[in-house]
């Protein structure tokens, strides 16, 4: 059995290290959590990096607690916590969106999309500082206008798939783009492509029409 080499469809080691340490901000860790829910081998890689934290616990010089802790009271407190169960999966068939996304948005059939033009629809999931996580629904065969990135973009595919001119991305895949190069994803022809896209800087489109659309897309 060979281990996954994390080609483009999986997050790189530095991203997983940051996820494991807890350093990834809101939005980014949602995209990674969605990928991990769908990719057992990256879950194992993430656990490898979490074990750095485990080793740190083992090696840490203990810091005595100031207040003596009453274990019985702590257990009582634990037993009193109301368990928040995630949204029940919709009846009839397995859900498309995995947790933790489904608790935030409902399943794919629940989404109320807003058209942004050119066969692309969107739903903003969360905004945190400059980071925006949005769902995109791209009609079959449609190209998202060519755009360059100033910051980081993570795209986790939930259904359907797309080509970016070099690689194909399908359900469970994630694309992490950190460079400036423009790219132009094209949805595969057989089905719409639904993906979770997280960006941290306004995306710059090339060409006039997409630029005019940009304020509406809030991209």
């Amino acid at each position: 059995m060979t281990s996954v080499r994390h080609p483009d469809q999986h997050p790189g080691d530095e991203v997983l290290l940051a996820y494991a340490s807890g350093a990834l901000g809101a939005g980014w860790d949602l995209a990674i959590a969605v990928h991990l829910a769908l990719c057992p081998s990256c879950r194992a890689r993430a656990t490898d990096y979490e074990s750095l934290g485990g080793a740190a616990l083992d090696d840490a010089a203990p810091e005595a607690l100031h207040e003596p802790v009453d274990i019985a009271a702590l257990i009582e407190r634990a037993d009193a916590v109301e368990e928040k169960r995630p949204a029940a999966p919709p009846s009839g068939g397995a859900p498309v969106f995995p947790e933790p996304l489904r608790s935030l948005t409902g399943d794919q059939t629940d989404i109320r999309w807003s058209p942004v033009g050119g066969g692309v629809r969107q739903k903003i999931v969360l905004q945190d500082g400059g980071v925006v996580a949005r769902l995109l629904h791209i009609a079959p065969g449609v190209a998202v206008p060519e755009h360059g990135h100033r910051g980081l973009e993570m795209t986790a595919v939930l259904s359907g798939g797309y080509y970016d001119g070099r690689d194909a991305f399908q359900r469970g895949d994630i694309q992490v783009v950190a460079h400036e190069g423009p790219h132009k994803p094209v949805a595969m022809k057989d089905a719409p492509c639904v993906c979770l896209v997280v960006t941290d800087a306004p995306v710059r489109f090339r060409g006039l029409l997409p630029r005019l659309l940009q304020p509406f897309m809030k991209i």
Binding site: A37, L38, C39, P40, R43, A44, P86, P89, A94, P95, V96, F97, P98, E99, R102, G172
Partner: peptide
Amino acid sequence: DPAFAPDE
């Protein structure tokens, strides 16, 4: 979660 891909 039913959409969670289990370990191999």
